[in-house]
Design a protein around this nucleic acid. Structure first.
Lengths: 590, 590
DNA sequence: AGCATAAATAATAA
DNA sequence: TTATTATTTATGCT
């Protein structure tokens, strides 16, 4: 994407791209589109998207009219803009029929195979996004792992909007490429952008990488569906949320959760999301939805990654309608990738950034109302754009290196080294992506622990919502991958979805999470029992006679000693343990 | 940094700054300097840095002639240059004597107190960096927490280079500011850049924020030395690696681990680092060194963050010497922060690029007194500042619990104190940063778990290396902050150092970690006790010969091992199942 | 300051 | 899946 070119466009759109290469094999590409000014109201129904289409992977995304204009504004956030709300910018005129522009829109891609990474991904015109008025929407569609490169797919899309409807953020993820298989980071750098924005009017600006679409639309196939028939198959078209259609070549997408949070006013925002039926159901119902995660030291997920943020912002407040503000420049930045190495020295992710946007998003998010501290509104934005455009810098060095290496076989480079590594998604005999499952299992554990949940809690909660077959043991085995790939494949989407929802509730508060999970909030650790010497003596006497009393015996003993039955049971457990350890030592010594 | 200005410079240097605001209170500022062209060989010793000096931070950096004129232009843009590799760029002429330029150089800052954040940090001229030829080097020096603002300090520096010596990456971290205490994210943003690059020739470009140096060189003091006399004290001067000197005002640095990994060739790179005596010792010996972490859902560290990466690359191949390539522009990018939301919906970190961030503006306006923070240094900053200012974000709401009541009678524990303090950098009566400790405790736990270590293992390992007083209980209580601030303050650096080292070993392999931790490598999990070890062994022997014994065989085995026939039968069932699952998984892992 | 062991959580035989 | 064991964490006690 040429900076100058974009700048020249003067489109009231800001494109921020950020590429995060996950350890192992995932790459998350985040593209944020910010449109200054108010968004047009959504059509009665999102079907309009159907119109689009074409062998270019045009699908028929449906954009539903968002309901509940509860898009709550940022918390304290955007006082000014809100106030400014009065002066709404004129709607952006888009050539495509149904497309609605949102501000901002973030696209996150992840889990793309190397080969796929090289393929062009185009967001078709006609792609619809949620309007700011919509609280959130989620759509999911994905190619099967082995899908042809020509298949278009639907990607999860989540939008967060504000009352004013001025701004909102949509995020959807789609597979990118495995870092290892990439020629180098460069392969994934922004410079090599593969996204084509859907806004016809902004095309020049939006086209990061002009690549001829090579695919054709195909019916999206969710992983869940293919792998987990049992899982509730989702039909994108059926969802109420808006859908974005993207063309990708042979992309196999991993489910990604989409969540949103306002910067400063997170709480509120999140709450609204959580309480929004659409969103909630989307999360729960859509198998593939889950949050992106960062792998940690053991390849386990360190945390959920890409969520959106953004609350509406000052943009709307500031100024005139985007269309009317030619001055606003389109900004695109490429950032050199920043690597995040995990405990094992492995690259966890590469964070590359993009530019310009922070400001916008933030400003909005900002809780700090004190308005003008910074310069907001149209003028401010403009200035930024201008100044930044020039800034656009050359693609990061990494990219360069890669490029070079790739093009010329001469100098041994990173790419070569990389290439030496076996690549390609590991698919087992059944076409199951084992690597993907392994990764998820790790992530699941870390995420579970991050939420402070036990295997038991997860199992019980799932049993309650999904029916039996989710015992603590099952969870344990899944985490240990002590199950067959087939089973794992079946369990994965369920766990993914559940965990994502749990995280959502957790965002609303620990209390809410506990409520969601199991019920009793904040179950405290039982107070350590102190046995009286007499009790200890009695217990030991019983133990000598029978180290493994039956339930009835335990009950009797507890009753006689006047201790809680559970306490007595545990005492025996620990006593046996102690004896065992002791005996072992003896054995050892011997 | 004005883009134009930079560009005008035509310096073969690329500056990439990325700011990652950690949840709670840490900000990581990453500055990458890339110098196109080959690097000069390192001097005999890295002492050259001593020469550095002027209060302006201008020193006599030595810039080696970079080889491989890789100043690569934009990503895709400059494929050609790579090919040009043959033509080496002429060495860059630098006034300073000893400084060596490296490509790229990354600086990471973290854990700076708010007040400190506002202070200018200048990289003195004469700062030395490792040459590409060096595999890795680490230097650490830091101010004591209470050190005056005028003391310069050495920062950990790690370099990774390639054989060719063309490129390498150096990373060092230094404290930035506590997010909570900052006026907003903006406070920590790049806009308020405080780094002054050491390259005289590139000054215009490198000066993100022109701030008059306020400090003077002082002898670096490693945390290790102060906290862990036992640790092998490192003398920066003694190391062969290059050192970077930075001036900072009253900065108290947290130990940061520096590690490096090549992108594509990670394995190799890491290995080299690990095997490099200098590096290893540096890590082990330097107390302060630890990796940066990302806080997760529970405020716990999600993962270690900033490490370097970088493999040398094609850059070298490409081009002319930097000096001779005026065409190469200096690139500076500002990135809008990307928020990473954790499981609790809290912002884990803001990944943004750099510059200009709103933060500064904000900070200035709000809390930060330090005047002109916003526009500093040369003009470049100006432009960016202007545009981004608006973005300034509000600080996150840290823990708001203001609990209560610490009954005074006894010495309150950290957890009690922390909860009682509403906000701001919580410094207890002894000037201990409780918030920082709280954060660390959380991080420690996550990092420990990420390494798969138990409290017991940590305790035992520490007892072995640090002497008694590190029981499992102690570790447990530290994590739970069920100790007095004084104790925590004392324990923190030890744990920090140890964990960082453990992570380092872990990078070399799980085996190495176990060796480091406890001794017995890979102690296999004990089999369920129902069977004696001998029995298990026998069973496995039988299993190897025949995984599916006949009824008669089972009977015989049970008889011989003196176990119930049914027990043996079930054992075989489970054994087969396990093998099945495991084998499939293994296939995947490969 | 830390042992001893209760309580909690994960893993595994049945 | 359930029951029990294996491990780990937390805490009473002095």
């Amino acid at each position: 994407m040429e900076v100058e070119e974009l700048a020249a466009n003067n489109a009231p759109l800001t494109i921020n791209e950020q590429v995060i290469v996950m350890s192992g094999q995932e790459t998350i590409r985040v593209l944020e589109l910010e449109v200054a000014g108010p968004l047009p109201a959504l059509g009665a129904d999102g079907k309009g998207a159907d119109a689009m289409a074409s062998e270019e992977g045009v699908a028929s995304p449906v954009l539903e009219p968002s309901r509940g204009g509860e898009g709550t504004p940022g918390p304290e956030g955007t006082p000014t803009q809100e106030g400014a709300g009065a002066a709404m910018a004129a709607p952006v005129e888009l050539p495509s029929p149904v497309v609605q522009a949102v501000t901002p829109v973030a696209l996150t891609s992840a889990l793309m195979t190397p080969a796929q990474a090289a393929l062009p991904i185009t967001v078709q015109a006609g792609t619809q996004f949620l309007t700011p008025d919509s609280l959130a929407a989620v759509m999911t569609g994905m190619m099967t792992p082995g899908a042809a490169a020509t298949q278009p797919f639907l990607i999860p899309l989540s939008m967060a909007g504000q009352m004013a409807g001025q701004q909102s953020l949509a995020v959807f993820t789609f597979p990118t490429a495995t870092m290892a298989t990439l020629p180098g980071l460069t392969a994934v750098t922004p410079a090599g952008g593969v996204l084509k924005l859907p806004f016809t009017g902004l095309q020049a600006a939006t086209v990061l990488n002009a690549v001829p679409p090579q695919l054709h639309a195909a019916s999206p196939q969710t992983v869940l569906q293919s792998n987990n028939p049992a899982a509730s198959p989702q039909k994108p078209a059926e969802t109420q949320v808006s859908v974005a259609t993207v063309q990708a070549a042979g992309i196999s997408i991993n489910p990604a959760v989409i969540s949103a949070a306002s910067l400063g006013a997170q709480p509120q925002f999140i709450s609204s999301l959580a309480t929004t039926p659409v969103f909630t159901s989307g999360i729960a119902g859509i198998p593939g939805i889950t949050s992106q995660i960062i792998t940690n030291a053991q390849g386990q997920v360190i945390g959920t990654l890409p969520f959106l943020l953004n609350p509406a912002a000052s943009l709307g407040a500031g100024g005139g309608s985007p269309a009317t503000l030619p001055a606003q420049t389109l900004q695109v930045q490429t950032v050199s990738p920043q690597l995040l190495v995990n405990a094992q020295g492995q690259i966890i992710a590469t964070i590359g950034g993009t530019a310009a946007q922070p400001a916008l998003l933030h400003s909005v998010a900002q809780t700090q109302p004190p308005a003008k501290p910074t310069v907001q509104g149209a003028a401010a934005v403009t200035a930024v754009s201008v100044s930044q455009a020039p800034v656009i810098i050359a693609p990061q060095p990494p990219s360069l290196k890669t490029m070079a290496a790739i093009s010329a076989a001469e100098t041994p480079t990173v790419s070569q080294l990389v290439s030496s590594k076996p690549q390609g998604p590991a698919l087992d005999d059944d076409g199951i992506n084992l690597e993907e499952i392994r990764e998820f299992a790790k992530n699941f554990k870390i995420r579970r622990l991050s939420l402070g949940l036990t295997q038991t809690q997860v199992g019980q909660a799932l049993t309650a919502t999904e029916g039996p077959a989710y015992s603590q043991s099952a969870i344990c085995r899944f985490e240990k991958l002590d199950i067959t790939p087939k089973s794992a494949q079946k369990l994965k989407p369920v766990l993914e979805r559940w965990l994502a929802e749990a995280e959502l509730w957790n965002q609303k508060g620990q209390q809410n999470l506990m409520e969601f999970v199991g019920g009793e909030p904040s179950k405290k650790r039982k107070r350590r029992t102190s046995f009286t010497p007499q009790a200890i003596e009695s217990l030991n006497t019983y133990f000598e006679k029978n180290a493994l009393p039956t339930g009835q015996e335990i009950t009797d003993i507890a009753k006689q000693l006047n201790y809680d039955r559970e306490v007595v049971r545990v005492w025996f457990c620990n006593r046996r343990q102690t004896l065992k350890n002791t005996s072992k030592l003896n054995v050892f010594q011997i």
